[in-house]
Design a protein around this nucleic acid. Structure first.
Lengths: 353, 353
DNA sequence: CTGAAAGCGCTTACAG
DNA sequence: CTGAAAGCGCTTACAG
């Protein structure tokens, strides 16, 4: 640390310094910086030179205080460690960057109190808009968003009774395909590890499962459904509970990728061979699911597209539009974990072991 | 959208409205809001009531324009989709939240130009400090950070010639253990899929491999080293190249988890059995590596601790301190992918197939 | 404990 | 095309 750096630490270069160095007024400097066409070539050059020489970075705080635009978008995901949301964050960030926006990322950890805390912060930061995969029933801060007219779109999930543009997946199609596929393999008892029924995707996927089970005349034994929380540990518990039944299922469908991960871990631990002793299908197509042996069958939907569309929708709302919500398709991808036809009698309950 | 919401959309509640509603001056309202003790119980109550009634959210932009503190930390990771960095983002975010800071997350995508773009934005947003896993040689915007005295710490990686506090992993220990372990299994030709030599972790891990190879008297054939870019595709290419040698290796060490993932994918595609035909060890302990069959041996280091320490260090720098850098340990975890003793002659080159 | 006032660093009508 | 000036919403000495 020499004298020079010590001094620099205290000094902040402002537009006033730039104007002085360029020999123009602050107003002119500002116009050049914001690309206002009402500027002469001469001042443009001189200001640009001064900016470079002084290493000037405009104070975004001051700028947005006047212009009420921050060029910042808040993104609130349910769980960054969930690969689906990490991929979503990446997709949103790339799309936003292309439009000159940066992302303020918050992580709710699947908890409403953390979500609300971040929402408060995002409001205070005066983000131009918010993309949120919501928690809870919309009784909390989400209502504030609406009341204050802050441009907001839902992604992945929605909240009942809150009418906001959204980008979601039609989970029903993929789940129907999965159940039919499993029925074709001879499975009649299909276990289901459900997401929380307080979350729209949890409900929608569970309903789709229920309807598909009925449509295919399969067992409607309520014990075949385990209610998890979309996180890995509950997938493990779910498998444990299902295998503990008098009549365990011969196939399991997990409603998201962390729960599927937990399910795989528990099946391994219990020595149950996936694809042979137990068919398994996961909702969400995570890259490494294909690397398991046997590879995991999945219900796939495009997270990349979801992120892009969410940004498009939000930009429309910011521009005063009221765009239609978008529903993306889901599709079953059959791999080895579910493609061995079921031989009746091949699975036994843990109890009998 | 009724009249009410339409009106609300245009209106912004400011501290002036709160003061008026509470019957106090703006100054007093401000003091109450910031917890200044020089306030009477009476005004505290009245202001709190007004805030609640008006749903007031202080404008963070205006606040930080005066106080020069934004309570915001910039975090720049190399690649959010890399589980290691997603976990790191989560750890940093939780630690920051506990200290009342929010995280502005940027993703460099392992590219220096994207990093510099985010760095510019973070500087303009006047974040209180920056935690960065740096790209490049420090010739670009990173120098600006230093010049302007913006509190910054490096995480995971460092940049030569830039003297900033950092939290890194001592990769050497784990890599030495891994090489010794493989040597113990009878491997003499250990392939190495290296990270970019422009990145400190890439260099450090490669050097550790080289030294360990020499120390154990193993083959120093330069063809056994493939230089990747820390991303998955290069792991696949690396495996392909190594198996194409006249004398392929019998074990492979991959310098990060995405490249290890690519390696696994390619080994599967080529029908090479991991743990039997080819031993495999990955740097980074990603949760699902343990779910592969055979489970992947890994060199583990604590991302959770790394995130926490980085925040601690940064807060010290923000408070004017000059903390010492921290080096965390790494440790080999042996699993099935590398624990079958090598039978000479079990691996053949692709060329002979 | 409180109020009036200056000022943080910008942008933006308003004249010219 | 340019300058002078007002103002965005806060915080913070300064008096009292």
């Amino acid at each position: 640390m020499d004298e020079h750096e010590g001094v620099a630490r205290m000094t902040t270069v402002t537009i006033r310094d730039v104007a002085a160095a360029a020999g123009v007024s602050v107003g002119t400097a500002s116009r050049v910086l914001s690309g206002n066409p009402a500027t002469s070539a001469a001042s443009r050059e001189r200001v640009a030179a001064a900016v470079a020489r002084l290493d000037f970075h405009p104070n975004a705080q001051a700028r947005s205080l006047r212009s009420t635009r921050t060029r910042t978008i808040g993104l609130l995901v349910s769980d960054v460690r969930n690969q689906f949301f990490a991929d979503l964050a990446h997709a949103v960030e790339q799309a936003a960057l292309a439009h000159g926006y940066v992302i303020l990322l918050g992580n709710a950890n699947e908890r409403e109190d953390q979500q609300d805390r971040y929402l408060d912060t995002l409001i205070s930061q005066r983000v131009d808009g918010i993309i949120v995969a919501p928690q809870g029933d919309g009784s909390g801060v989400i209502r504030s968003l609406l009341r204050r007219g802050i441009p907001t779109v839902f992604v992945d999930r929605t909240v009942d009774g809150i009418d906001l543009p959204s980008v979601t997946t039609d989970s029903g199609h993929g789940i129907r395909q999965a159940v039919e596929h499993l029925a074709d393999q001879g499975h009649t008892r299909i276990g289901y590890i459900a997401g929380p029924q307080a979350i729209s995707t949890g409900r929608e996927r569970f309903n789709a499962y229920t309807r598909a089970i009925e449509a295919n005349g399969l067992s409607r034994d309520p014990a075949l459904v385990y209610f998890g929380d979309f996180q890995a540990a509950s997938g493990s518990s779910g498998v444990h509970a299902l295998l503990n039944l008098e009549q365990p299922p011969t196939a399991i469908l997990a409603a998201d990728s962390p729960m599927a991960t937990g399910a795989v871990a528990m099946l391994h631990r219990l020595g149950v061979r996936i694809g042979t002793d137990m068919a398994l299908v996961a909702f969400d197509d995570i890259e490494w699911f294909a690397l398991l042996q046997p590879a995991l069958s999945v219900i796939s939907h495009s997270v990349e597209k979801m992120g892009r569309e969410a940004v498009d929708l939000l930009l429309q709302v910011i521009d005063g539009g009221a765009p239609e919500s978008i529903v993306l398709p889901s599709e079953l991808i059959v791999r080895a974990s579910s493609s061995t036809p079921h031989r009746p009698g091949s699975v036994s309950s843990l109890r009998k072991n």
